[in-house]
Design a binder for these strands. Structure first.
Lengths: 188, 188, 188, 188
DNA sequence: TATGAATGAGACTTCATTCAT
DNA sequence: CATGAATGAAGTCTCATTCAT
């Protein structure tokens, strides 16, 4: 109540958790306010609307993650090491903040309509690396979109299985295994 | 007006399309009835509730697809051919009824809470095949859940990219390529 | 299905039972049709509407009962014997058809708006007898309406208690006791 | 807008009036909100549902009235004076708040299913007094339930006739007369 | 007469949002 | 900034009634 930013963070974190637990549409303002211990109106001191909250939560973190992916790939020279670094980053993100990772995953479909093509997203970063790898012949010639999809699928579906409790070990501990698998996928 | 099953099919098909276009929660009874050209109350002649409609639509087709997957894998002897047949089936299903495939994909997360463990699902069929392959040493020793996730991810994410228009060719035409990729994934 | 009047009686009897069990508004056409084993539309072959059914059921039996009360009182000469005969009739009606008696009791309030003053009702018959008794000095001078209310209350409330299971013996076996009590009430 | 309890009282009083005028089922949320001059949703700031409103309105006042009856009977020593005091209380309640009295009367049947046996109700208070009177030989030996029903009937049916406009004087002015009649009823 | 799928008005309820305090 | 009562549009669902067969 003293520091407004504390309240905002509280609301944001609570909303994130509930969005993942119940879904965005299924989570009401009352749910969030109640779980955060603030009044319903308070939310509107920090966000214009529920949609704005969901969007902010999505896009800020989606782009930030894309930025991190981009940074780690830029620090590597070969496609193989770029891919390795990116997958490690994926796994690290998942392990450090599974709730946020899940949120990006599940809200992706709904929010993607509002993502403009010029934005740098995790997918576009991965696609650029894969496409460059093919262009530079570090990866056998193939359709970049399909190749990207397969690599992305390997990582994301393992994350989904982890969320569902089908997989026990941390993703980080599986990162090398995932990288190897992805690399084999790309070797045509 | 005479044949109730025609009306039911009309409602079902309309609902399926709208659910995929706008999302389940975002699709209203009025949307469905309006698009199907029937009265709102008519929906309740055939389904107990909107949730029941969404669930019926999901589970009937989810289980039917699982059944088809199971049938084709049973007709093959080796894990490799089983996998190949299943992936072809995946691609065929996608190409023949992309709307339904998309619906199963997007509603999976929400409806999965109501799926009981004894049900045979597409995931459980794939998992069984992979696990058996590992047990029989047709696939190198590894964690079956993780292996299943990776294979599933390859196929599903390519389907997602296809839905988003990132990929042009039909999935069926990519089936062999996907099978090869999945097999490389499993070769440790 | 062969004889229409059988179907009508079936519907009528079923409706009566459900109206008493659940209340008129709370009983749906579907309830009645389902319990009677006929289609929903069939009801409209015999009654114009649900309200018409409820009203017919009420007024026919309300007036018929009034007619019986009137008949038995006319066959007696003194107010005391008239009252005795009427109360016996009340009790007999209750014991013979508790469901119908209950229906008249509970729907009275709602249907009474449609009862016109010139109709001969159970209340008007009782009132006439009491008023005549006062006029003829067979009952001490008093306000006829209040006197009628008290007599009616004694009988009806005992019936209500019987319906609620608070009273065991049949009303008929209590008729003399009720008559005596009513008579004492009227003796100012 | 500031003081919520004012709004709640307004809604409650409006609902009470309409419930009595038209019946509970026949009164819609829109009716209540419109007559109270609030939005429809406002009702749900104060009550969980329409049923909860009807129930609260019933049980709070039903039990409060039972409490008052119990209090006045406890202040008297003999059954005769207890009965006299209770009937006066009945009449006073009716004259002071005929709408509430009518509501308790008409909703009694529907709400009684939710009344548990351990609750002290107006009927149970009266029954206890009558039963005690019989036990103490202040009233001739008889079945307490039937005796209670008759006394209750005398008072309630006069109230009903008053509601219907058949009786002009206030119930309070008739209280002594009613008490005398009830007493005669009990004298076997 | 009987059927029952279809109708559509309208009931109850939810919930994002506002605003006076 | 925070509050929370109030709002009212919109959603789901019910149900008396119709009508083609």
């Amino acid at each position: 109540m003293r520091d407004g930013s504390k309240t905002k963070e509280l609301i944001t974190a609570t909303a994130l958790r509930l969005f993942v637990e119940k879904g965005i549409t299924e989570t009401t303002i009352r749910d969030i306010a109640g779980a955060a211990g603030v009044a319903e109106g308070t939310l509107y001191c920090h966000y214009d609307s529920k949609d704005a909250l969901a969007w902010d939560l999505f896009i800020a973190n989606y782009l930030a993650f894309a930025g991190e992916l981009d940074r780690v790939q830029e620090e590597r020279l070969t496609v193989k090491t770029k891919l390795e670094a990116m997958i490690h980053k994926f796994c690290q993100f998942f392990d450090e903040d599974q709730v946020m990772f899940s949120y990006l995953l599940l809200s992706q479909h709904a929010q993607l309509k509002k993502v403009t093509p010029e934005m740098t997203t995790p997918v576009s970063v991965l696609l650029d690396v894969v496409a460059a790898g093919i262009a530079r012949d570090e990866i056998p010639g193939q359709e970049p979109q399909a190749a990207t999809a397969m690599v992305l699928g390997v990582v994301l579906q393992v994350a989904v299985f982890k969320v569902y409790g089908r997989i026990q070990p941390s993703l980080t501990s599986l990162a090398d295994q995932l990288t190897a698998a992805c690399w084999r996928v790309l070797e045509v």
